Amino acid sequence: MIQPQWLETFRQLADLGNFTRVAERLGVTQAAISQHIRQLEDRLGPLVIRRPRSIELMPAGLALLDYCRDVDRADKALKLRLSDVDALEGEVSLITPGSIGLSLYPLLLDLQQANPGLVIRHRFAPDSEVRAAVMESRYEIGLMSLRPDDESLAAEPFTTEALELVAPADRDVKGWKDLVQIGFIDHPDGQAMATRLLARQFPGAGGLKGVPVAGFSNQIGLILEPVARGLGFTVIPEHARRAFARQEAIQVVRGTDPVVDTLWLVCRAEWALSMRAMRVVTYLRERLDASSR
């Protein structure tokens, strides 16, 4: 087994790139730092290329740095699981798509206000980043719009989310020609979402072909602002629409055949969720159910 002190020395050397600075940070002699690295190299082979004012990691050094990061993640996971005595204190980390995140974040803040010992760490991200963040244990729980097929991830339905056609409140939208006249407010997922929904609400219209683009925003919380100002229509998930402050300035144009997606709660399959995370998940489900009634 590799001595933890040697690993810490190597981790600091990779970070600072200089033996003298590492010795100063750790409060030991430079000779001690050199001895730790020499002990590691005796076991693992050459780790660094020593230069006058810096070092460069060799392949074995890069591999060891990855190992140090794995050890750090495992240590954090252990502390997380062992600190479940009080489910109302400690950190809960959650990573979600932006649309559902707009609805969840105020609820999480409500919970944190009621429980000052609880720390909420919430990030908005697309599915690919959610999967990677949970797999690498950077976040304990995540939400995805597609169920992951990786056996290392456990997944269960969390809630549903419909796509909605949202237009300015003061525009009369009765058919396809009305949308063409208004124009489309695009966003990073706009083309794909609009294609799916418009094909059902207006079959035979050809999707977005012939619809002028009237604007674009990559900020989930701002996509509906130009719609509210009468500049165009868009297609956006229901939770993002519900989170918009000026509901009186927009309207949802509903069809007879909605597009409804399942959002999946994901976590590491081999690790049980902390009591804090389970408490947060239960709370969010209850609040979402209450708001949808």
Rank of each mutant, 00 (worst) to 15 (best):
Q3F: 01
E8Y: 02
F10S: 03
T20N: 05
A31N: 14
G45M: 12
I49H: 07
I55L: 10
P59R: 04
L64G: 01
L64I: 06
L65K: 05
D66W: 05
Y67D: 08
V71T: 09
K76M: 12
R81P: 04
D84V: 15
D86L: 11
L94N: 04
L94S: 03
G98Y: 11
L108G: 10
Q112T: 11
N115S: 12
P116Y: 07
H122R: 04
H122N: 03
R123D: 03
R123Q: 12
A125C: 07
V130K: 04
R131Y: 11
E136V: 00
S137L: 09
R138S: 01
L143V: 03
R147E: 04
P148E: 15
F158Q: 04
T159E: 02
E161R: 10
L165M: 10
L165W: 12
I182E: 01
D186E: 10
D186S: 10
G190L: 00
G190Q: 00
A194L: 00
P203R: 00
G215E: 14
S217A: 13
N218L: 13
G221V: 14
E225G: 14
G230A: 14
F233I: 11
R246M: 11
D257C: 08
V259K: 14
V260S: 02
L263Y: 11
V266T: 14
R276M: 02
M278Y: 02
R287S: 02
D289E: 11
